[in-house]
Amino acid sequence: MSFEYIKIGKEEKEFISKIEDISGQNLYACYQCGKCTAGCSFSNQMDLTVNQVIHRLQLGQKEKVLSAKSPWVCASCLTCTVRCPRDIDVAAIMESVREYILRYEPERIERMKVTGEKAKNLPNIALVGSFRKNTEL
C-alpha cells in the first residue's frame, strides 16, 4: 500500500479556479459516481478515466492532469455531459484541460504535417474539428 500527501495550497487553488473559469463548471459538484466513465466509448484507451480526471482536478493535482492522455483521447462526443446525474458539463471540463494546455502550447498537432493522399481525402469537418481541438489558432 502506498500513501501520498495531498496538498491544496495557493498553486493548487489557482489551477482549480482557472479550470472552473474556462469550463464554467463547479468541479465539486461531482460526487464521483463514475457514470461518465461508464458511458465513455474511449475509457479503455484513457490513462486516467473521466471521473479520475475530475477527481485529480478537485485536488488541484495539476501535473497529473496536464500529463494525462485522456483529454486528448476524448472525442467530444458529449455522452458524459448528457448523462451526468449532477448536471455537470463533463465534456466541457475535458475541453478546459485541453484549452489550459493549448493556451501555453498552442499547437498540439502539427498542421503542416497532415499531408499526402490521406489529407486530400479527409472530410473538411475532420480537419477543421481536429485543428480546433488540437490548436488554439
Binding site: A75, C77, V114, S130, K133, N134
Partner: peptide, 13 residues
C-alpha cells in the same frame, strides 16, 4: 461515437 476528428491523427481510436 465513431471517433470523429481523431481520424486525422489518431486513426487507431
Amino acid at each position: 461515437c465513431c471517433g470523429s476528428y481523431h481520424v486525422v491523427d489518431k486513426e487507431d481510436i
